[in-house]
Design a protein around this nucleic acid. Structure first.
Length: 714
RNA sequence: GCCACCUUAGCUCAGCGGUAGAGCAGUGCUUUCGUAAAGCACAGGUCGUGGGUUCAAAUCCCACAGGUGGCUCCA
């Protein structure tokens, strides 16, 4: 058998060669460090015959790369080949974490013998195992589980793979009566697998009949699990691990189905890497917008006001105002018209748009008129009947708006339009309300009332592509100005699955046309994007800009959506050059998405060190003693004249204390003023990240600062 | 909404059956200071809310509210 190694050299090996035997033939060190291998790109065990894996594809020659962990020095530090620490070799960590999941499963099964295992995959930064168990596992159990895991690791038992054919394997699983594993196996076989593979955490007494295949299930005394693998060679390779948390999950993600406990953990090759990871998580916690927002007085959420409702404090309001000014500037440049619309509208309007029937569950219930309630009362309408009528929309009332589009549509529809008027671009910072499930709420990123930097464009078919591009430009401009380069682009398409058609309105042909426009526009952005089914809005496909928060959760910010459906539902028209009525296409777009979510993410992005133009407090004047308070105030007032947000530290702290406080408050500029400055008419400039910049004439400082602010420098 | 956990001063947290504690922030006084925290004093809490157990509850039990993590959902 000919095998190509990563250096492109081609070698000949026995037909029964395994990655382990190849590694051994290359060198003792490599064999010792080896954890698994990639055969034609597929991650496999060291003991897996290469020919077996290669036979699954038909590519020849066979490419083989040995996956190794880091070298661990005498101090117990991990040294990765390419010099990068954890995360430097995703494959090695994948193997490690997958194997650690097995070890954890074994430990839990030992401590809680009634446990039924379901599914335990590795993740980007750890792993989890879903298991069915009536006794709740709590964090108090973690040390016990970890102690048991430690014991298993110390025993350094091999992970041994064996395979059974379809019928024998299923027979074994039926004997064991674990419906989840039976289901997993069914799915694997449906997916084209010819055999079922099992992993024993320990040696096998018997030799397989052929390759890894047994004719009948071998007798196993150690823990074993139906698993496609692969794993590290033995439990001893697991360096450091920690159980992180436990949560609920459901079989196949279906709430109606069986409930699992999902135990999360993480693993590294060394304790030092684990510690570094935990420290990083701790740091992220300090960067969390909920912590920072509190500390810097940006916003608050008050249970007396209500869940998921943001109170913007003065400092946060400044950031929001500045961002709105920034967007308004772009809107003027791109020929938008600003409009204002109310927060509520008649239920009928939302029945026409489709919001009421399609997304009723995520709206606040309708506001019912007093007269109607008393009429119903006279008719002896019961609460149950009232609830039913409301559900069906049989009650005339007002809805707190879940979206702005119906209002903008009615503005469009309030006059006749010629093709010469198009495109018409209506923009509004529109506040909408949605009934999010209580468990979903999260700081500013998932709320029940929020303001979209919304706009709706009414365009002709011919204008669609150009206008879409214009919208995407705007989103890109926003992200670029703020230095947010770490985003991904998602084209959200309709879910084609049968039964999901109640999740969208309109016909498939229009959807496909709109989807195509979105793909084309996304492709023209020049950044990679993914097309994802089931991620569309109910009225049309969309292009979303998605970013991660400090704990790795993804949030959709900017969005651009193409809509053929609402113009039809509202019967929108314009008069074409042929003097005939035509239907416009709508584009919905919001470069920030929502002010709340965007600023929540922005707080974390800057870790509260906002660029000058966004900083709630731009300059703080620090007199070295209160003898210089007068001069400090005169400096401040000149800055205020130049429209800077400036304060004077009037405390009788010492200078060092004033500096420490200002640094903590992340004020971009500190102006230290004392006798020398007063005499010379200068200020001693200290920048929050660059430190002491020395004395400069005040006028000079103001001129420089204006530039930095007006250019919105980062 | 579901599961687990959490809720003590403005903030961060200790106390876990026997009279409510610390640091920071705040207020007052002393100090008048040149690039990351001077000193002293004072004030501040029905221990989330409501029930229960007990001679005695911040502490144990129950319910509710709010929060955190995850699941599900997300126009």
């Amino acid at each position: 058998m000919k095998i190509t190694l990563p250096d492109q050299s081609v070698h000949t090996f026995d037909d029964n060669a395994t990655p382990g035997s190849v590694a051994a033939s290359i060198g003792e060190g490599l064999a010792r460090a080896a954890l698994g291998a990639k055969v034609n790109g597929k991650l496999v065990d060291l003991t897996r015959p290469i020919a077996d894996v290669a036979a699954e594809g038909d590519s020849s020659p066979v490419h083989l790369a040995i996956v190794t962990g880091p070298r661990i020095n005498k101090k117990g530090e991990a040294q990765w080949r390419d010099g990068t620490p954890s995360g430097g070799d995703a494959d090695a960590l994948y193997l490690l974490r997958h194997s650690t999941a097995h070890v954890m499963a074994e430990a839990i099964c030992k401590l809680f013998p009634k446990t039924q295992l379901a599914y335990g995959p590795p993740l980007d930064n750890g792993f989890y195992y879903d298991l069915a168990l009536d006794t709740p596992i709590s964090s108090a159990d973690f040390p016990k589980i970890e102690a048991e895991m430690k014991r298993i690791v110390e025993e350094d038992r091999p992970f041994t793979r064996y395979e059974l054919d379809r019928d024998t394997g299923m027979g074994k699983l039926y004997d064991e009566r674990n419906k989840y594993k039976i289901d997993n196996a069914d799915r694997a076989l449906d997916g084209g697998a010819q055999r079922l593979s099992f992993y024993v955490t320990g040696p096998l007494a018997a030799e397989p009949d052929e390759g890894r295949l047994f004719e009948k299930a071998p007798r196993v005394t150690n823990f074993e699990d139906l698993c496609m693998g692969p794993h590290v060679p033995s439990t001893g390779r697991i360096g450091a691990f920690k159980i992180m948390s436990v949560a609920t999950s459901h079989w196949h993600g279906d709430v109606e189905s069986d409930r699992f406990q999902r135990v999360y953990g993480t693993a590294f090759f060394t304790q030092a890497e684990l510690d570094a990871h935990l420290a990083q998580l701790e740091e992220a916690k300090q960067r969390d917008h909920r912590v920072v927002g509190q500390r810097h007085g940006l916003f608050t959420i008050d249970e007396k006001v209500g869940q998921g409702l943001i109170l913007w404090k003065p400092a946060g309001a400044i950031i929001r105002q500045e961002l709105q000014k920034f967007i308004l500037m772009h809107l003027e440049r791109q020929g938008y018209s600003q409009v204002f619309t109310p927060h509520i509208g008649r239920l009928d309007l939302f029945k026409t748009s489709g919001h009421f029937p399609y997304y009723q569950d995520s709206q606040y219930p309708p506001l019912i008129l007093r007269e109607q309630l008393s009429t119903l009362a006279k008719e002896n309408c019961t609460c149950a009947e009232l609830a039913h009528k409301m559900e069906k929309g049989d009650i005339d009332g007002y809805l707190l708006k879940p979206m702005n589009c119906p209002f903008h549509i009615q503005i469009y529809a309030s006059e006749k339009h010629s093709y010469r008027d198009l495109p018409i671009r209506l923009a509004e910072f529109g506040t909408v309300y949605r009934w999010e499930q209580s468990g979903e709420l999260s700081g500013m990123t998932r709320v029940r009332g929020f303001t979209q930097d919304d706009a709706h464009l009414f365009v002709t078919e011919d204008q669609l592509d150009v206008e879409l591009a214009g919208c995407l430009d705007l989103v890109k401009a926003v992200f670029t100005t703020l230095g947010m380069t770490d985003y991904r682009v998602r084209v959200g398409l309709r879910d084609p699955a049968p039964g999901k058609s109640d999740k969208f309105v309109g016909d498939a042909e229009q959807w496909d046309k709109a989807g195509e426009s979105c793909r084309k526009a996304a492709a023209s952005l020049g950044v990679p994007f993914t097309a994802e089914e089931g991620e569309a809005a109910f009225y049309g496909p969309k292009i979303d800009f998605v970013v991660k928060d400090v704990i790795g959760r993804e949030w959709q910010l900017g969005t651009v959506q193409v809509d053929y459906v609402l113009p039809q539902r509202f019967n929108l028209e314009y008069t074409g050059p042929d003097n005939q009525p035509h239907r416009p296409v709508m584009i919905h777009r919001a470069p920030f998405g929502s002010m709340e979510r965007f600023i929540g993410v922005l707080i974390e992005h800057f870790n509260a060190s906002f660029p000058l133009w966004l900083s709630p407090e731009q300059v703080r004047v620090l007199p070295i003693s209160d003898k210089f308070l007068d001069y400090a105030h005169s400096v401040a007032s000149q800055l205020q004249q130049a429209a800077f947000r400036v304060t004077v530290d009037r405390s009788n702290d010492r200078l060092n204390a004033k500096i420490a406080t200002a640094q903590q408050d992340k004020v971009p500029y500190m102006l230290i003023v004392g006798g020398k400055d007063q005499e010379a008419g200068t200020v001693s400039v200290r920048h929050r990240s660059q430190g002491d910049r020395g004395a400069v004439p005040l006028a000079q400082f103001i001129a420089d600062l204006k530039q930095e602010r007006d250019q919105r420098r980062l």
